[in-house]
Simulated scan of single mutants.
Amino acid sequence: MPSAFSHAFAAVALGKTYTGSKMSWRFWVLAAGSAAMPDFDVLAFGLGIPYESMFGHRGFTHSLLFALFWGLLVVWCEFKQVVRFSREWWSLFAFFFVATASHGFLDAFTDGGEGVGFFVPFNGMRYFFPWTPIEVSPIGVGSFFSQRGWIVVKSELVCVVLPFAVLWLAATLWRWAVWSRIKLKRAEALEPGSETASKS
């Protein structure tokens, strides 16, 4: 798995792509937390649940069904001010579904551990993508303060942080270009001699 930091960064970058509006701190905490939430299943190791079990690591909490339930729970409980089943409500639900599901997708790009149970509980198979460039992250914070940990950090910077940072920048530039075009059209419409200006 990539580290919790990389999962959280991916969610924030997706959030910045999702909206250009100023969102509350709660939105960003929920986005980052949703992306990291699936790794809650590491508790299975301490409970003696086998890795390959449906409830083992990278099992149910990494599935698309869990992402669906979690996205629904977050929006239902934390965004009560939004009219339920409105366009904004469905948009928020879709975002938190994607933010949560992004965890499993990133894990499927790693080069170790068991695959990801995308379709648990309907299908117990574990999946990796054909290309697995991300070094699998060690479990436990202490493991990062080692040569192996540094290799993982470098891998995540290149394969996770950089692509999502580019996505974030591209979304920001696109919005800036669109807003600049709108302002230019407004300015042109108000110039002396223009049809809009003459009507006013």
Rank of each mutant, 00 (worst) to 15 (best):
G71F: 07
F79E: 10
E88Y: 07
L167Q: 02
L64P: 02
F109W: 11
D107S: 04
A177R: 07
W150R: 13
S21L: 13
Q81L: 13
G15H: 03
G46S: 04
A11R: 06
S180Q: 14
L190W: 13
W131A: 15
P2K: 01
A165Y: 08
S3Q: 03
T132F: 03
H57A: 09
F5C: 02
L157Y: 02
I151C: 09
K16I: 01
P38W: 12
F144Y: 15
K199C: 10
D39S: 08
F79M: 06
K199R: 14
K185F: 06
A94E: 10
V161G: 01
K154F: 10
F55Y: 14
V120Y: 07
P192V: 00
F60V: 00
D41W: 09
K22E: 15
S143M: 12
G46Y: 11
T100K: 07
T100A: 12
Y18I: 01
F119M: 07
P192W: 02
G46L: 05
R87A: 13
G149K: 05
A35Q: 14
V42F: 14
R175N: 00
V116C: 03
G117I: 01
L162T: 11
V153F: 15
L72S: 14
G46N: 10
F145H: 05
S3E: 08
V12G: 05
E78C: 15
A44W: 10
S3H: 07
G112S: 09
A108D: 13
S34P: 05
A8V: 04
G117H: 02
L167N: 03
L68F: 15
S146H: 10
Y51N: 08
H7R: 05
G48I: 09
W70L: 15
A165T: 07
G149C: 01
G149V: 06
I134C: 00
T19D: 11
S3N: 11
R186F: 03
V75P: 09
L106K: 01
R186A: 07
V29F: 15
R148V: 09
F164Y: 11
R58K: 10
L64S: 04
P121R: 03
S21G: 10
F122C: 06
S198G: 01
P50E: 04
D39P: 08
S102Y: 07
S143I: 04
I139T: 09
F145D: 08
P138V: 12
E88R: 15
Y51T: 03
W89L: 09
R148M: 08
G20L: 09
A177S: 11
S146Q: 06
W179A: 13
P38M: 12
G193Y: 04
K154H: 06
M23S: 12
F85P: 00
F55Q: 01
D41L: 11
R148L: 04
D107M: 02
R175P: 02
E78F: 15
F27G: 08
A4P: 01
V158F: 15
K183P: 01
W89S: 10
T110D: 12
D39K: 11
L72F: 15
E88A: 13
F105H: 06
A44F: 12
V74T: 12
I182K: 09
